[in-house]
Amino acid sequence: MTQYLLNINPIAILVHAAIPLTIILVYALVAIWAERKVAGFIQDRLGPMRVGGWHGWAQSIADLLKLIQKEDIIPADSSRFLFKFAPFMMFAASYAAFAVIPFSSSYIGSNINIGVFYLLAVTSVLTLSIIMAGWASNNKWSLLGGMRSAAQLVSYEVPTIATVLTVIVVTGSLNLMTITEMQSGNDILGFLPNWLIFQNPFLLVAFVIFFISILAESHRVPFDLPESESELVAGYQTEYSGMRWAMFMLAEYADMLLLSLLGATLFFGGWNSPFGEFMSGPFWSFFWFMLKGLLLVFVMMWIRWTLPRYRVDQLMYICWSILIPLSFINLVLVALWEVIF
């Protein structure tokens, strides 16, 4: 162990830590702006237009500056340490999970063999931090939000994992880099890329279940119950303000990106170019990877600005009565397909 620690190059660690962090931060700024633009366009509005010139591109930066300057309000009767700690823990959980995401053909934070397992394990901490925030605020709305969130995340982890398992059954690897590399090439029907979603009809079903589950896991409409603003005011974030609230926001968007990137890796060939060798290479692969992830993020936004939200019991019903049985049946079918073909 000591030997292992001595072998670590601190600069390499810093670089490895800084790259996903930069990506997350830049993405969060862009995504928050984009979310508002998407909302605006869908609703026949324009969204932010004034800050920074072209289509208000600097809006998120201005918001960030405002949030930094705001007073850090901590309710008198809250558990101070937990209250302060929860947003950072939440962000840490999503940030840590980025370590195993293969951003490009030549870059992955940590190329470990249990990548998927690690990712799913680390994101479970999100639940903990949300309960922490909800409980520590000592606010009834926060408490309700926290409890809803705990129930929701724990439930939806099951179909998520079950669908991820289907991919693992097909690829036979837990390493996300290996899974991605297995999907390169354009062989299906002569032109389609070898992405898992095209390889097997049951994987398409798996993707639908996976997508619904990640919608719920990242608290997006129609499953945004923990922070449903018209019922629970703001759920577990009710008592938060300023920078701590911004951390929640950041973590939420990071989580959204993380799960979308996971989806892109598992089902859409990760950093593989859709045109085979054309436009591949380290830079292009990063481009394709982010494009796929951001497309999924866009679909999530699109859904958010279209649908009403489910009620908490319906949410549970969908999970336990539909998605979980379906995902396990699907797992068996995928396995059978793999055995037969």
């Binding site: 909302a39 869908i42 409409v221 129609p222 449903s228 018209s230 600005w305 649908l307 009403p308 939200r309």
Partner: peptide, 8 residues
């Protein structure tokens, strides 16, 4: 609709 989460 807004109360039920449908903003648009």
């Amino acid at each position: 609709g807004l109360d039920l989460g449908a903003f648009t």
